[in-house]
Deep mutational scan, measured.
Amino acid sequence: NKFNKEMRNAYWEILLLPNLNEQQKRAFIRSLYDDPSQSANLLAEAKKLNDAQA
């Protein structure tokens, strides 16, 4: 399933972002589970926040 693969990839990438705190990571991951079809958008948002907090 395409969404499962995308979601899994986004999950691990979000977990490994160094500048997000645990609460932020949990919020993004919760959103991933709520709507896996938004994986790419959520990952992009997480990366943007990660860069902003660098």
Rank of each mutant, 00 (worst) to 15 (best):
D34V: 12
K5E: 09
F28N: 00
A10N: 02
K2H: 13
R30F: 10
A10K: 03
A44E: 06
Q53P: 07
L42Q: 04
E22L: 08
A27V: 12
N41I: 13
Q23D: 07
M7Q: 12
N1K: 05
E22R: 09
L32W: 03
Y33H: 04
R30A: 04
P36A: 07
W12Q: 05
L15F: 13
L32S: 01
W12D: 05
N1T: 04
Y11F: 08
D35V: 11
L16A: 13
A40G: 06
F3H: 13
E6V: 02
L15Y: 05
Q53W: 14
Q38G: 07
L42P: 02
D34P: 03
K2E: 15
D35N: 12
R8I: 09
N19Y: 12
N19W: 14
D34F: 13
K48V: 12
L49S: 06
L16Y: 13
E22S: 10
N50W: 01
E22G: 09
S39M: 14
R8Q: 14
P36I: 03
S39D: 01
N4S: 04
N50F: 01
D35G: 11
A10V: 08
A46V: 03
K47P: 00
K2I: 14
P36S: 06
K47T: 03
N4Y: 13
P18F: 06
N1R: 02
S39V: 13
L17P: 00
R26K: 04
N4H: 12
N1W: 00
N19A: 06
K5F: 01
N50G: 06
P36N: 05
E22F: 14
N21V: 08
A27Q: 09
S39A: 06
E22Q: 12
W12E: 08
L49E: 06
F28R: 01
P36T: 06
K5N: 03
M7E: 07
P18D: 06
S39E: 01
R26M: 09
I14L: 07
N21M: 14
P18M: 08
L15D: 01
N50H: 06
L15M: 07
P18A: 08
Q23T: 10
A44R: 10
L42M: 08
P18V: 05
L15W: 06
K47S: 05
P36Y: 04
L20F: 02
A10M: 03
N21G: 11
K5R: 03
L15R: 14
L43F: 04
